[in-house]
Simulated scan of single mutants.
Amino acid sequence: MTHKIISQVVTSVISGVILAAAALVPMSSSFAQDSATYDAVNKTWNLRYKDPEIEQWINKTYITAAHIYPAVRTTVSLESGDFKYSYHIKNGSNAGQDIVQITIWDIPLTFYPADLPKVTADLITDGQLYKRQFLAKLSAIENFSNSIVQSPPGWSGDLVGLDTPGKSKFVWIPGLEDEEPNGIPPGGEEKRFAVLRPELPGVVRMRIEGNNPEPWMLGLLPESPFWDLKVKEIMATDHVVIPVLAPAIAIPSPYVGAELGRRIQAHYQTWPKYGHATQAFVDELNREFAVLLPALDRKDKRQVRHAFIRIVTRLFMIHRGMVLAHALDGHPRSFETALMQSGASSNPIIDRTAARALVYSLYYLLVQSERGK
């Protein structure tokens, strides 16, 4: 009897497990065999899904826009009272695509034109005045963007995100005319991308994309939780990300050295999130800034000078061969590559781009301190 009871209990438990597992399976089996496999060598996705309209299984190869091998060199120089951020971009000879879009995004500032014309007229009651005001506003925004973003011949550059706090972006795309370039081809390069702004450099990310031959393919996939997640995963591999210097730290006006120091400190707190520096190194910097900030408050030139020397010497020890001139202007042969694509840093402590940003900002603080500011 005991064996029979045990057998019944075991049978009951097994049946319960089977029923519970069955409850987890969707009623429709349309997506049971859907799959998406990434080919890291060719930078493609092999997609398999059932077309709900024709009830047939479809096999597709999605070629990502990341079949490129970009390298970027950033230089920062002074021009007409602003900092000029110049970007020299190469596409490796082994690339399978032209570079067709370049975006510097996630800039923690909003760039907005002063005295932007307002649209006060009502579209319904005074359509002509509304149109004139609206066009005047668009023209002012375009002029503002053109005064900041410089582009090579045949490329169009734009400032995007004027109305979104902390979400400004610089975007470049090749021209649409037949005689204009299609992008940066494999083995090609372009030196004339630039941004003019008064802010000090910080580390942000440049997103670079190749000419994906079928970008609409993802829109044809079935609607399901599986494909919702997979599309996000696919899109994360649909570009190459490189850390670059860009205007990210606003200089206070009127100038206050300690306030600028606090803004620099706030910026480098974000570096561990993106792999630019370890948290341990950021903690080390914070200890140095605990000395630097009060010295800036007191206008103590000697202590500011000593703090600068300690931090910069430490950075130069980490990045052997880096000297002040190259940290400020960029070494002629120093190009950043897709080290950030997987979230990895070029250095286990602090990457070279972050080191350059910090040296540049600290040097600015030092020069202002020596001037008695």
Rank of each mutant, 00 (worst) to 15 (best):
P348F: 03
D122F: 05
V240W: 00
P215C: 10
A140Y: 01
V282H: 03
M340S: 15
A357Y: 00
G16W: 12
R305K: 14
F31M: 04
N347M: 08
S80A: 13
G16V: 13
I107W: 02
G275I: 10
L196Q: 08
M340A: 15
K90D: 08
L78M: 13
E179A: 11
S77W: 03
R320V: 08
S346W: 15
Q279F: 01
V149N: 08
W227Q: 05
L328G: 11
V41F: 04
G81E: 09
N212Y: 00
Y363K: 10
F226H: 11
E288Y: 10
D126T: 09
L229F: 01
V244A: 04
K131F: 06
D297H: 03
Q133L: 06
K43W: 12
G161A: 00
A250S: 14
A95T: 00
H67R: 14
F308E: 10
K131Y: 05
S168E: 00
E370H: 06
Y87I: 08
I350Y: 12
D163E: 14
K373V: 05
Q368G: 01
T270F: 01
A266C: 02
P52H: 09
I148K: 04
K4D: 10
I68C: 02
K299D: 09
L220W: 01
K191Q: 07
E288P: 00
I63W: 12
V367E: 15
M217I: 15
L159Y: 04
V203R: 07
I318G: 09
P225V: 05
K230I: 14
D228S: 13
R197I: 09
L245G: 06
R305M: 12
A344D: 10
P272V: 06
A21V: 12
A71C: 00
L293M: 10
I234P: 10
H67Q: 15
T2W: 07
P225L: 06
G321S: 15
V323Y: 13
V72W: 11
A40K: 14
L293H: 12
Q279P: 07
A354I: 08
G183E: 14
W155N: 05
Q133T: 00
M27W: 13
V13M: 11
W227E: 05
Q8T: 02
V195Q: 00
